[in-house]
Amino acid sequence: MKIKVLQFISSIHTGGAETLVKEYAQKIDKEKFHVEILCFNRLDSPYEKLLQESNITVTFLSDHRFFIDKVHPNLFERAFNKILRYILVRQYIRKMKPDIIHFHLNIASYVNFASPKEKAVIFYTHHSAPQRLLSDRWYRGTVENIKSLIKKYRVHILALHDEMKNELQDIFKFNNISVLNNGVDGDRFRINLNKSQAKQRLGFAETDVVIGHVGRFVQLKNHVFLLKVFRQVKNKVPAAKLLLVGSGELKNKILREAKLLGIDEDIKILENRLDIPEIMKAMDCFVFPSISEGLGIVTIEAQFAGCTVVTSEAVDKRTAISNLIQYVSLDRSESDWANTILDCITDCDEKKIQYYGLESWDMKYVIKKLEKLYEDEYATMHVGAKERN
């Protein structure tokens, strides 16, 4: 009998946590596991079609229309929607009766309210800096809800690296925590496409110096700082172009800021793309000045693609899987960042690229490790330690 796994996340856009859920669902052993995905909202993400084509059941609670067409729902309507969403999550989970519920981001309260079956195993992957659990309003109540789940269920927390594991152990006073890398589909990023071809595909000239970024338009990704850095690069190298890949609520603000800085005509924005490896091949440097990151998996992807990376020190240094990456403090000036970027581009030599520890980041390895964790926890609850051994 297959182990029933529910991957539960708020949405399936093309962010890091969402990409991981998509990869888990597509690549897990279908002979052993039956996987479904539960989300709150449809976002017209290309992942939605991709999962459908892979015959993976994805349920969107927003399909239950409740004031969904209103641009500005009033206070009552917002409260009604939220309460109904809790009820719908509980109905879904009680109907599916998953053996494993694997949730991501700050939706622990929904799992807690759903009261899954007694022998359900709860997995939680933490994707951001652990201190955000204590200080960020977005995570309000998450710690208490996870502690409540720990009291009632077999819970297994997944951290992205050892330091995060230690911090989560301190926060939850709980030891059933494993480190599991956010894997990368290495085969997708090791493609035979040279930089000139990749630039032409995107409408750039071969002589353009393309500075790239992949990430949602949200405050933590620090796009305004990136624009100011790019302006410094542009002052030094007139052929520079900025390529931004992503979507989000701050997109229009970023466009207005670019116009104020006088660089709007040198920026290209691409949304909802599945061809990230091909896009990264066009970049002369991938720049990632995040204010906070749980890990920064996109910097790993960029290195897999052979791209030079300049990132903030908010990104964990375990992402250094090659000699392609440089970490720069956000206390440094925009001019310093620009100089570092241009130095990295100048110094980059494909013949001198060195990689280390790639296997542990490859999605094939990560999936095998995840399957083992699922099977062991399921056996603990349903078979018993003696039979399992």
Rank of each mutant, 00 (worst) to 15 (best):
V121A: 14
L168E: 10
S45I: 08
D136R: 01
I146A: 05
I171V: 14
R132D: 14
F67M: 09
F60S: 03
V35K: 02
T59K: 14
W138C: 05
I107Q: 11
R42Y: 10
R42L: 10
W138E: 15
D136C: 06
N74I: 02
T57G: 03
L105P: 01
K95Q: 14
L51T: 09
V71H: 09
L50N: 08
P73N: 06
D69G: 15
M96W: 01
I93W: 05
D170Q: 14
S109W: 02
Y92A: 07
R140F: 08
D69T: 03
T142V: 15
R132A: 08
E31Y: 03
L38D: 13
D63W: 01
A79P: 00
L61A: 06
F76E: 12
H127V: 05
H127F: 07
K147M: 07
V155F: 09
R140P: 00
Q91P: 00
N166V: 02
M96D: 12
N74Y: 06
I37Q: 11
A114E: 12
A120V: 08
N41C: 08
D99Q: 03
L133H: 02
D99Y: 03
K151N: 13
R78W: 06
K82N: 13
E167G: 00
F80Y: 14
D63I: 00
K32P: 07
Q52M: 06
D44K: 08
A79L: 14
L158V: 15
P73G: 06
L149A: 08
H72S: 09
Y47R: 00
L134S: 11
P130M: 10
R65A: 08
H102Y: 11
G141E: 09
F33C: 04
A114K: 07
F60D: 07
F66W: 07
V111N: 12
S54D: 15
F113S: 06
S148Y: 08
F76I: 11
S54R: 09
L75P: 00
R90L: 05
N74C: 11
R65Q: 14
L133R: 01
D170W: 03
S45Q: 08
A129Y: 11
E144D: 14
L84N: 11
H72E: 14
A114N: 11
I100K: 05
E144H: 01
T59Q: 11
I146R: 02
I146H: 03
D69F: 12
H102S: 11
F123N: 02
S148A: 15
L61N: 01
R137S: 13
L149D: 10
P73T: 03
I87P: 02
L160K: 00
A159L: 04
R140G: 09
L75W: 14
F76Q: 06
F33N: 09
N106L: 01
E167C: 02
W138Q: 15
Y86F: 15
V121M: 03
N166K: 14
D63A: 00
E118I: 05
V143D: 06
F60P: 10
S62V: 01
F66N: 08
D170A: 13
L168F: 11
A108Q: 02
R154V: 01
E48F: 12
L84K: 09
Y47I: 03
G141D: 13
K165Y: 04
M96L: 15
I87M: 04
R42K: 15
R137I: 05
V143P: 04
I87H: 07
V89F: 02
E36D: 15
M164W: 04
Q52D: 13
H156R: 09
S115L: 13
Y110R: 01
E31T: 11
L50I: 05
D99G: 04
